[in-house]
Nucleic acid binder design. Structure first.
Lengths: 217, 217, 217, 217
DNA sequence: CATGAATGAGTGTTCATTCAT
DNA sequence: TATGAATGAACACTCATTCAT
């Protein structure tokens, strides 16, 4: 596997971090255009001018938000790939568990990420995200090919599309698709709902993955 | 099956339609907040004030955009369900073909639709869309249950989640997910790319659906 | 003489005119950068947004200010040139009287005009002003050459430099050069001062012009 | 001759000098308002806060810029007056040569100086400059009166106005008046242009001065 | 029905300056 | 003496909407 170039991780001050967190929350909630820098400043309890001061522009802040989150995700997937103690099928399971957990926990970020796929505005953002997705795909491809070599997985499977299916499904769940809320009927508190749905989602995805990976035409 | 309440379909004048079309295009391209009413007015070649005049507000226009598209989609799915001449598996295939074709053709609308799931702002929009999705789910559930009764489909399948998987996958494709573009390597012109990917996507989805529907734990 | 191309004169509404007047005054007083659009809006008693609405930008307003004034000056000089009833020397006298009167009356504009010679910012402004000055020079050259043909004026005179001397002197006076205020000692009220100085200035300039035009090396 | 009060010459540190030089350059280029203290700090390669620290305010810096340049000019004119070895006419010639050379070399300063005549803002600046000009005028008056006593110069001449004419003409040239650039037709490189124009300008001014000083009504 | 004019609130950003160290 | 961080006010400009006609 080729060595990926990584920008040196920028260290953020406490104030910068509070701005980033506020921005991540609001961007996801209201969209990039729907959020004003004053909203962010208020939420982060800093002066408006600090945003330009630290991040040059609103767009620069968006990029900081995204790149900050990317670093975290990258490591977890790499760890899984290099883990020598578990079999391919379990790796798929763990991959799905990890993706679901991370995407549901950081909905904010993934909503930003998905939104940005369509808005031309985001200068450096899209290349950054696309590179990250390409890199993830490489890791997962490796993982599945290991299973194929062991005869556990079908060789027919279209890996990029399967990954897209998994990501797309979780994204729907994360953005509150009505289909998702309809998936569990009986549920009172939001907390419980969230827990049951998460479990259902994981099981469903594993089943889809398993079925697709092992299903021979 | 319960009777769905439907708002009487509003008849739009030619000018209103041109505004709606312009808005659908621009909202999808630039987002709701990213689009100004002046942009829309210019694109539709009408006076700015007409938008407030016809749709009361920018938000009212968004609702008009969405409801206009919903009417079209509703009928197609109903037709499929009531079709007595084809078997459940073929219905699934046709359903997927239809969804892919419609979502790719009217990306604009579906992007608006997905975006709106998170933005609190959209007054009547979410209930409208949620109702539509609930209705669609009902039809598809019916369709799958027919297959289950005939012993063609597994009874374990979680229908809302499967639908969510299908929708989620197509949405990723429609919004230009890097995973999707990575799914077909060799391709020159954008046109060809689009065609090949569409075919791959449909095959993939049918395989996923088939595997999931017939896969016994 | 070649025919000059002229942009069709834009007709300004009453509100536009009040903005232009306010801007001319403030730009001259505080400079372009030193004047805020809010200042102008307040002075003209209009809403801030109207300035963008009418003139697109602050710079557009500046251009409107300048081009509005240019039109007025152009005609007066043309009239003088085409006047067949007075001799060259009297034409010089009248030219100077006119220049002094106009530059002192519309100090604002000429200060803007001079300022703009150095600031790169002014997109269309400089070409516009340079063209106007070139055109003026053409007329005056014609006028002096008439006098040279009649043997009234020296043929040694450097016309562009003489014009520059005249303009430069008036400009100093108009911008309140200390040399000018020192030129008349006894004077009480500002009104009288202004009157006496004007007269002195005109006499001085005519003497300079006459001496220079008739002085043989 | 009255004794002029002079502020004790402030000694500037190396850092202060680099700020002053940067400021002189930028103020002349972009105007006072058009220049930000950050621009100056960057140009001078010092911290922004240093400017307030050293000069109290941006305005204080402007005053420092101006007073620094004034000191230099003052001495040269004094030297000329006290020179006992050359005749009045040659002194006029040398005066003009000196003024042209200094004003063209330090355009920056003179642009600032002229600009400041109109801007009310400049607290101590105008009195300072006016005092300097008054002092200069006194020296030149002395010089011309010497010539008048010797019968070389006309007694009709209005000295302040003549000085104003000379200064005004040079200022036009220094600020790039179109009249000036039109004064020399054939010229290729900017360097040559500059040289030829300077020579022309000096000759013109001397002729104007001579003609005016010796011309009897 | 339709529109150009007008509005006031809000946008992202930059400003000169001050503060804590 | 020197500085990076921080501030609040101001900047030019755009917004969705309303008004008078």
């Amino acid at each position: 596997m080729e060595v990926e170039e990584r920008k040196p991780i920028r260290i953020f001050s406490e104030k910068e971090l509070s701005i980033i967190q506020a921005a991540e929350k609001l961007f996801a909630q209201l969209g990039f255009d729907g959020t004003s820098v004053r909203d962010i400043a208020r939420e982060a309890q800093v002066n408006v001018a600090m945003i330009s001061y630290y991040f040059n522009s609103k767009l620069g802040l968006l990029e900081a938000v995204v790149s900050a989150r990317i670093e975290v995700g990258r490591l977890e997937i790499e760890d899984l790939l290099h883990n020598k103690t578990i079999d391919p099928l379990s790796k798929i399971d763990r991959l799905i568990d990890g993706l679901v957990d991370r995407m549901m926990k950081h909905k904010s970020f993934h909503q930003i990420s998905m939104r940005s796929q369509l808005n031309a505005e985001n200068g450096q953002l899209n290349p950054m995200l696309a590179a990250q997705k390409k890199y993830n795909l490489k890791l997962i491809t490796q993982l599945i090919q290991d299973g194929q070599k062991l005869g556990v997985f079908s060789k027919q499977v279209d890996i990029p599309l399967l990954v897209m299916t998994i990501i797309g499904t979780i994204y729907q769940a994360a953005t509150g698709s009505p289909y998702f809320t309809l998936a569990v009927k009986a549920s009172t508190s939001e907390q419980i709902l969230q827990g049951r749905l998460l479990k259902k989602l994981k099981i469903h995805l594993k089943k889809v993955a398993r079925a697709t990976l092992t299903y021979e035409v």
